[in-house]
Design a protein around this nucleic acid. Structure first.
Lengths: 229, 229
DNA sequence: GTATTTATTTCGTGC
DNA sequence: GCACGAAGTAAATAC
């Protein structure tokens, strides 16, 4: 990993064209060849970048009118995208061997929500019974298929954040599932940690129930059961 | 901007829980208070981060069994999310004043595609005439409304990448527009630089025409016209 | 390999 | 400030 603090201007020509006027920035050159240019704000996103595989060529500039001392050209292997850095001043330049990273272990995403809800299907109501997770259909798998206390089939769509897309998706599943005489009639449940108002309105309008999931509570049930064994 | 190369372990508890085992990494502390942790690959994405507003507290650790020398705690102002860095070794630590960045100027995104297609509406077929861009409806603006050679009204939805969402969006517009006796019947055209197979199937099934846009060709027409004036 | 879905999405924009 | 749509989305997963 090479860290360069430099006063530079940047031009990108690739999926779009973009330009960064002259300013002080951090240029990050990683071991995989990728290059990113950061300003002093926004944790997540660089101002500009080039994904690997790409190559960096450095050329000195002499007697440049505008005062530039070097041009760095980053070329993307396949697509021919280019990032051109016009370097005016270098305030810091250091390199560091970091080695391979063991990587992030994460927990609490949609897949996990689905597992938890399948395990604790009665969260949806007393007497609910799981048929199966990832119930396959021609247009893709339904997150959870189950039966309610009256043995009516229920299709559940799970999202971390429930938006209109999710309601549309569930609607397509319901339309298809209701054509199957073995399953019909099939009710829909839209389950998410957070449901956007517009999504809720659309769901209700289509007779789909909305359920807000409490991840910590679901996990809490888990923990409580863990203690029993 | 503060750059720290450190051997550290990281724990995040917030929107999810995540853990990074001990390894050498770059910790980037920006002027807006944001913190991001980078490995030596992936240009774009940090392994872990905290968006502003947040605050960093550094505490020394003495006689830690595992060999940690400090604990850095990043706390997000509002949500209470936490990022805890357990520092074992610091190989580099430098700070740099970058100042405000003038920001990125970009070109070639959806808005630009819309402008170009509106200017060259006959790309859709001979005899097409523009009614207006961003035609307002109760559920949002239609990208382009125009008439084909038979004077039938046509609603155009433009995407850079055409996916199912876009077809659903256009379907909602068409349903609404077709209730207006002054406009009905209204046909739909789904225009994108790239149309995903599933989106195309759904569009065709609903009687919506699909058009693949060639950005360079549209821009080329522009250039050709520029040369005439 | 391609296609689809998720994301601590992030980011802008309009209300 | 909230909600919605786009992104040079990127990254993981299913097929």
């Amino acid at each position: 990993m090479r860290l360069v603090i430099t006063r530079c201007a940047v031009d990108y020509a690739g999926k779009l064209t973009a330009h960064l006027p002259l300013a002080l920035r951090l240029v990050l050159i990683k071991a995989d060849g990728s290059v990113s240019i950061h300003a002093d704000d926004r944790a997540y996103k660089p101002l500009n970048w080039m994904n690997p595989p790409c190559s960096l060529r450095e050329e000195p500039l002499t007697d440049d009118e505008s005062g530039a001392t070097a041009r760095w050209t980053v070329t993307h292997g396949k697509s021919g995208e280019r990032l051109i850095l016009t370097i005016h001043e270098v305030l810091h330049d250091s390199s560091h061997e970091l080695g391979l990273d063991p990587g992030l272990q994460k927990d609490g995403v949609e897949a996990h929500l689905q597992e938890l809800l399948a395990e604790h299907i009665t969260t949806l109501g007393t007497g609910y019974q799981l048929i199966r997770r990832e119930y396959p259909t021609a247009i893709g798998p339904v997150d959870i298929l189950c039966r309610d206390s009256t043995s009516t089939t229920v299709a559940v769509e799970i999202k971390r954040r429930g938006e209109i897309d999710g309601v549309e998706q569930l609607t397509r599943y319901l339309e298809l599932l209701n054509r199957d005489p073995l399953l019909a009639p099939v009710r829909g449940v839209f389950a998410a940690q957070e449901i956007k108002p517009q999504a809720r309105v659309l769901a209700v309008d289509r007779g789909i129930d909305c359920v807000t999931l409490d991840y910590d509570a679901l996990r809490g049930i888990d923990n409580a059961e863990d203690r029993l064994f």
